[in-house]
Design a protein around this nucleic acid. Sequence first.
DNA 1: ATGAAAGCGCTAACAT
DNA 2: ATGTTAGCGCTTTCAT
Lengths: 341, 341
Amino acid sequence: MTAGAVTLRHVADAAGVSVSTASRALAGKAQQYRISQQTERSVRSAADRLGFRPSHVARSLRSQKSGLLGVLVPDVANPFFSAVAREVTAAADAHGLSVLLADSRETTSNEVTLLDKLQARQVEGLVICPVGDEGEHLKQVAVSNVPAVLVDRGFPDVRLTTVTTDHRAGAREVARTLIERGHRTIGCLQGRPGTLPNEERVAGCRDALREAGLPFSRRLVRGDRFSEQSGYDACHALLNDVPDVSALFTFSNQIALGALRALQERKLSVPDDLSLVTFDDHPFAGFLAAPLSTVRQDVSRIGRTAAGLLIEQIQTGRRPRRRMHRIPAEFVLRASIGTRA
Amino acid sequence: MTAGAVTLRHVADAAGVSVSTASRALAGKAQQYRISQQTERSVRSAADRLGFRPSHVARSLRSQKSGLLGVLVPDVANPFFSAVAREVTAAADAHGLSVLLADSRETTSNEVTLLDKLQARQVEGLVICPVGDEGEHLKQVAVSNVPAVLVDRGFPDVRLTTVTTDHRAGAREVARTLIERGHRTIGCLQGRPGTLPNEERVAGCRDALREAGLPFSRRLVRGDRFSEQSGYDACHALLNDVPDVSALFTFSNQIALGALRALQERKLSVPDDLSLVTFDDHPFAGFLAAPLSTVRQDVSRIGRTAAGLLIEQIQTGRRPRRRMHRIPAEFVLRASIGTRA
DNA sequence: ATGAAAGCGCTAACAT
DNA sequence: ATGTTAGCGCTTTCAT
């Protein structure tokens, strides 16, 4: 804290008035309190002259309002989460709020600790992108009275407003397209099993296969994390076990990268030997050796929706009526998908 | 702020002691103040039972320490800045500090306002990634006593510790490599002229040309922003004006993307018709149609260095002796660079 | 039209 | 071994 900072006391003294008058004058309540133009001006000029900057801390204590929003993400450097952070920051800014950023480094135990820290800092609202393995600690948040919104990885049994992509519809569209083009054996390189986005994506694939009267097999779903390594390992494993796979649906860019590396090692080319689609679009996707088909999540809209719901909740004091908000994804077809006879 | 929150008062009452005793017991100062095991236990259990969470706001006011670090970036969704934010957040966390995130949306006027807001919130330190056009307002920060570190875009006349990539050395290496491979007419698609990174990169190219006894011409340096559009426009303009350009050095990924789009329109292929190198590496760079050579900035190290210098400054109360910290960049050679006879 | 005083929740100096 | 008191900087009620 800036040592020896200028306080209201100093301003009041310099203007020859009491602290209360100084406070009122600066708060723009001169009218309301019938403070003379004279006084108001002299207070204002004293404040300017001394470089007075009101203490937000003192104000928060007095008003019982921190003006703080907490944003908790598993990794700010992940484009998805940084986009969420950006939208929330913009919305906060527009409402005179500030953002406390916390990064759980993909670890639930950090998430628990940070959630606690944020609440100790009296945040007025929380945007939480959970790690997703476990949601017990989120129930605490749900029963506390601090407004909160979950983003991306929700939990069926945690009663908190949740904003997420319509993963199921997005995945269904991908699978349908692959089926239309003659693919019958479609491998999924998934992310973390058990998380909502992952399970809904698997469900979307299953939907499309059923609709087409084709069988769905868990044997074709591999991988255990949203990481490059998982994509790489799962890709090799799948192709070893099921050589007739003709299309690969990877559940994230990282996974796609791993798969691409594995395919390169096996001297398989996209889309001639194998078709490839991935979740999450990407500026370079169209310039890849095989321009990559993707499911583009509307990250900005997700972030804005979450921020909007949170701020509404703070302002009205009421939970929004709808709990699940599914934001449509956009399928972007590029050359990485080929056809099979 | 959580209405009707449990305060120390409640805990003290429940335990039948004074607030001071309660405070001391919970602060782990039982030994020091010779508080009986008895008392300590009963205070602790009361706190647990009531779900007491100390108010950070009150503590900050009392201790005159906010425990807050301000991080100001032009755009958190830009991978460079989100990486910086991540490192600073991690370091803050390790030192019991929290991070206030502010996003200037690439606008200097926002930067000024936000800087003020952060200081009103009594941040104990500032990591600033300036927009870079203008540095007047940063001089205020330099003379105030809040510790601050500039990242990426420094200003020669602002006396603040600055951490940035060694842009000049990085660019020089790129240009040397191109020259070695027979390129004589090298176009630079630059970012925002006047900013430190941009000027140093241009200087690096000039260095390499001079060393090789080749002329340097401003006519070969085009573009005005670190954006895709600027890359696209500058690329077309340059190729129209100077048809014998054989290599393109783009100063960011966004610019590279624009250039790639322009080249595609002109049916020019990389590296056969034109070589291409860019600043900023990228997970997909190696999988592009023409695997892209890049200069990889060590973003994590930049972030860690900045955070370290800031925290050192906070703890010791002294400015670090060295003002400029240049972090080496790594040149990654891929197939996008061809040779010329 | 303005001031005095209380109090937000906490810690620490000063009593016992 | 524990309590009392003052005060961090601000806003607001209650006086005048």
